[in-house]
Design a protein around this nucleic acid. Sequence first.
DNA 1: GAGGAGATGAGAACGTGATCTAGTATTGTG
DNA 2: CACAATACTAGATCACGTTCTCATCTCCTC
Lengths: 253, 253
Amino acid sequence: MSQRSSTRLLVPPLPHTLSPAQQDRRQRIITASLALLRHQDHTQIQMRDVAIEAEVAIGTVYRYFQSKDHLFAEALALWARDLRRSVERRPLRGATNASRLSDVLQRSMRAFQAWPQLAKVVMMLEASDDTFAREIFTRNSAANLAVYAEALRDLPADVVVEVVRVAAAVFDLQLRRWAVGVQSIAEAYDRIERASRLILEFSDAGAATPAGVATPAGAAKTAGAAKTAGAAKATGPARNGRKPTGGSDARTS
Amino acid sequence: MSQRSSTRLLVPPLPHTLSPAQQDRRQRIITASLALLRHQDHTQIQMRDVAIEAEVAIGTVYRYFQSKDHLFAEALALWARDLRRSVERRPLRGATNASRLSDVLQRSMRAFQAWPQLAKVVMMLEASDDTFAREIFTRNSAANLAVYAEALRDLPADVVVEVVRVAAAVFDLQLRRWAVGVQSIAEAYDRIERASRLILEFSDAGAATPAGVATPAGAAKTAGAAKTAGAAKATGPARNGRKPTGGSDARTS
DNA sequence: GAGGAGATGAGAACGTGATCTAGTATTGTG
DNA sequence: CACAATACTAGATCACGTTCTCATCTCCTC
């Protein structure tokens, strides 16, 4: 949390309980934060900046959002919802589970590549203590798992669950390493492909996988694949209208 | 970083360039932060508290450490170095790569279980912008990879690299989910075991692995394994004196 | 021993997330 | 329409990481 121990008694209202004018005001604040995020990291955006951009008082920002973390969690969620529509227009590529999994992960990575400031927001939210921010972030993460699962076919449900968990872990780590500058975006793509193959090696053994785990030629091919992966991070509801898996995780906290 | 844009010209000196009195003072600050971390989260520890505990002025704390993040990165590193000695006294358990990998990961998890505040420190450091903190944290992460690699036998070097990267990603995610309360410690152990088996399924197919990927009995066994895993997170130099793998990653930033 | 350079101490000051205050505007109810 | 309740505004204030200031101490050199 922040510098002043929390004594505020009024919690942010649930969005659906707001009047139309309030919903508009709340949304304006979120879009203002995204607009500012286009030009600078969240660490450089002050809440007073957001208030000015949204044309509300600073107290109004805190009326709707518990904290800066909470606000940026909603901003990330808004971005993710918008991106769902675009990713639904592009079917996953690949003849094997590994290649399709790699494809969806690399699309997600590519979306962040286009807006690196959001990667830093993810980092922040992963470490956030704010319970409102955490809820929103957890829902997003669960939606990610559902989308990753759609890349997998002909596997038992329990195996799918495990695979997408490992895949999500890999993605998080690669995103982080890129976001903090420890590795290049090309390396991130490469590692995603390699890990996808490793994780699903048992399931794709019978498929026509031309490259092994660690061939230099494979690395070059990966860079090419990254170029052709055009969609964004798929974080929305499953395409069949299924509930996001893991959604109950957020409810237990 | 923090509330005041950084204008300080004097960077923290490298520890080995300090006089004996200064090294003692610096170390006192680090141990003071660890002592305070025994009773509260790092978010509740103020730098003035650390200064008082270490019996130095607040300016002296900032003489040796760039930021609060930097200080707690060194505190974590000190803890990790101490724990190397204890993990070196216990050979890894298991007849297969998956079981040995699971063992070392679960030992690491157990060390955090004994001191949960440190898990929150890891979360913070993963998102930290402070370059000094980042360097120390990156070195630690690289040392982790080296230790995980020692659990793997009879695998090509490039496969080992890939496996330990995925394993580290899984560990990070499980640690985080437990630290923020999204899952229990038992679940974290369980997921570590499952992921280890999944990742290494291709290599352990010929070994005598009695449990499948998702048996309830396996889950119960995992809890037992956690009880017997007594050592801490092995983060130090490789036992054979080998250089930590991935160490060059930190040098490139 | 004297003097200078560097380090440390004590505490003030700065900056930004977050909370509070007093006045004004809007909405809901009788 | 009048009044009460609620919401918003503008800006002051608080808290803690961080930086700065001035006085004092320690160490080194001549």
